[in-house]
Design a protein around this nucleic acid. Structure first.
Lengths: 138, 138
DNA sequence: CTAAACATGGACTTTCTGTGTCTATAATGT
DNA sequence: ACATTATAGACACAGAAAGTCCATGTTTAG
């Protein structure tokens, strides 16, 4: 029930890029400024590229750039790029053990949690995050 | 970002006990009825005992019983009994790496998520879960 | 053309945690 | 005394998360 380091890295990288949304950033710069292992960052960036959140340019002076404006990139996209579909508990889409029980009292609760998390992630864009920056920890 | 099997076991056991809130249940019964490995269940139950959610009686005809009524036991208690304090990300209470950065754009978001999860858990009692049982998956 | 700068993709290693087992001990009712 | 039940902690294991390394391919400045 925690945010993985990987996801945190991804979000950090993206918010970093959001400060100058049209520029190009080399992996090296992001890696150094955000203290993320270079080779590990490479994997993360690939996922973001594949998902269409950023685009990459090869060659000297290449790097990464946002594909959309920070206001158009929400955290649900980022989450799914990194972790895949969000689900609170495995049996929520497979019908494994749970199908053994005629009724499963806790499913609705996990579902409720899941729905509200998705809603929050979906409604939060990178731009929002930058704006909230000063008023840390609500 | 998932509900652990352990927590699910705990909730299952408690809702099972909630159906007959005054009775005593042996680990053996719970283990069999809920398909939870006996020795593993033992560890879970101890946590619930330590937290004061259930009480235990040793000896023949011993077992476990709810300490409060199902309406008075909420899921936040259960969560914390099993997993400890709920926090989305480690730096939310330690001041480790994050203190290096003058500003941390994503913290408010994780915090928002965290607060809303706690709210949902807190407002859901075992009794609620039993009542919702028939209308699965909202 | 060539080398520098960069990205890509996959294999591999390490570390950690969730999950589960085993064994020995203590308490209690009959 | 004996059977039954919980308590406590050590131990084992698998799978995932986190991180490393390397071999390859692309672009472009010079």
């Amino acid at each position: 029930m925690q945010v993985s380091k990987t996801l945190d890295y991804a979000v950090r990288s993206l918010t970093y890029m959001s400060k100058r949304p049209v520029e190009r950033f080399s992996m090296k710069e992001i890696s150094e400024k955000q203290h993320i292992p270079l080779n590990y960052l490479a994997k993360i960036m690939r996922k973001l590229v594949n998902r269409g959140i950023i685009r990459s340019m090869v060659g000297p002076d290449g790097g990464y750039a946002l594909r959309k404006s920070p206001g158009e990139i929400n955290l649900k996209d980022v989450y799914e790029a990194i972790e895949g579909e969000l689900k609170m508990i495995d049996c929520m889409d497979k019908d494994t053990i749970c199908s053994l029980y005629e009724n499963c009292p806790q499913l609705p609760v996990w579902d409720k949690l899941q729905v509200s998390m998705i809603k929050i992630l979906e409604s939060t864009t990178l731009e929002d995050m930058l704006n909230r920056e000063k008023s840390n920890v609500a």
